[in-house]
């Protein structure tokens, strides 16, 4: 049950008559990095929003291992072990890095309102344990020196790392990364690639939306290509690079 295999069957999403995703099916294998690529507006982020439950899905079915995610509320999907980052970074700018990462531990906190007043020491101990876990996580991501800085003061690349740390803090089975390399320089992209491989090593399934073809080729085991809300190709990075349909989608038809 802890594998983290994602299966998506013929999911679809329309926005007031405009088809954003039209019958997409793929599988993100447990412990692998699966790339979701395609030109702008091809439905990648919409797909991710459906997997995390932020958008209700119009048709199809989504499963994580043997659990159904279709039509499940986002916070329950998160509780099942799905974490993500956003294309436009969403951190609490005036809060510390540690406080931001601590948000990710929300679902593992069992201390609701009544128990806070019932037994305070237990809460404090739990809070300390969660903090210790988050600090370890920051060390693994090599941003522990920034733990007490305000998230808004960080460089772009570091803010991305903090968002990834927040996602990992929830101890997910499946991690969704929405264009994590956007706006990064070459060196930062290199470090991000290493980080994604490090996450893969720890056994977490990764679904990656990315435009940077070098990064995708470096980290992905398998790639799914979308165009106009449809799946146009699927395969290993080498296969995808030679696929005529993909070349056409990105570069246009030669005779066009």
């Amino acid at each position: 049950m802890t594998d983290g295999e994602l299966k998506v069957w013929q999911i679809a999403k329309h926005f007031q008559g405009i088809v954003a995703v039209d019958s997409v099916s793929f599988c993100a294998k447990a412990g692998h990095v699966t790339g979701l690529i395609g030109p702008n507006g091809s439905g990648k982020t919409t797909t991710m929003n459906m997997i995390t439950g932020l958008y209700p899905i119009d048709a199809g079915r989504i499963m994580l291992d043997d659990e159904n995610l279709t039509g499940v509320e986002p916070h329950r999907i998160a509780a099942l072990g799905v974490a993500r980052t956003f294309q436009n970074i969403r951190l609490l700018a005036d809060q510390t890095v540690l406080a931001n990462v601590m948000l990710g531990t929300h679902r593992s906190h069992r201390k609701g309102l009544p128990s806070v007043f019932a037994r305070l020491p237990g809460v404090a101990a739990e809070e300390r344990a969660a903090q210790a876990r988050c600090r370890t996580l920051l060390e693994e991501l090599r941003i522990d020196r920034l733990a007490d800085s305000a998230a808004g003061d960080l460089s772009y690349g570091d803010r991305r790392r903090v968002e990834i740390a927040r996602a990992l803090a929830s101890q997910p089975r499946l991690l969704l990364l929405d264009e994590p390399a956007a706006g990064m320089n070459h060196a930062e992209k290199g470090r991000l690639g290493d980080l994604i491989l490090q996450i893969r090593q720890s056994g977490i399934t990764v679904l990656l939306i990315e435009h940077d073809i070098d990064l995708v080729s470096k980290v992905c085991d398998h790639i799914v290509v979308l165009n106009f809300g449809r799946e146009i190709a699927e395969g290993t990075p080498a296969e995808i690079r030679q696929s005529p349909a993909v070349i056409e989608a990105y570069l246009g038809r030669e005779d066009a």
């Binding site: 995390t52 439950g53 932020l54 509320e73 986002p74 916070h75 998160a78 509780a79 974490a83 993500r84 956003f86 969403r90 609490l92 948000l103 990710g104 929300h106 679902r107 927040r166 996602a167 929830s170």
Partner: peptide, 17 residues
């Protein structure tokens, strides 16, 4: 506090908004 900041962030970290 998370909902106050962003309902979407709250949802994806597992907060029932």
């Amino acid at each position: 506090r998370t909902v106050a900041y962003s309902e979407d962030v709250a949802r994806i970290v597992g907060v029932p908004v």
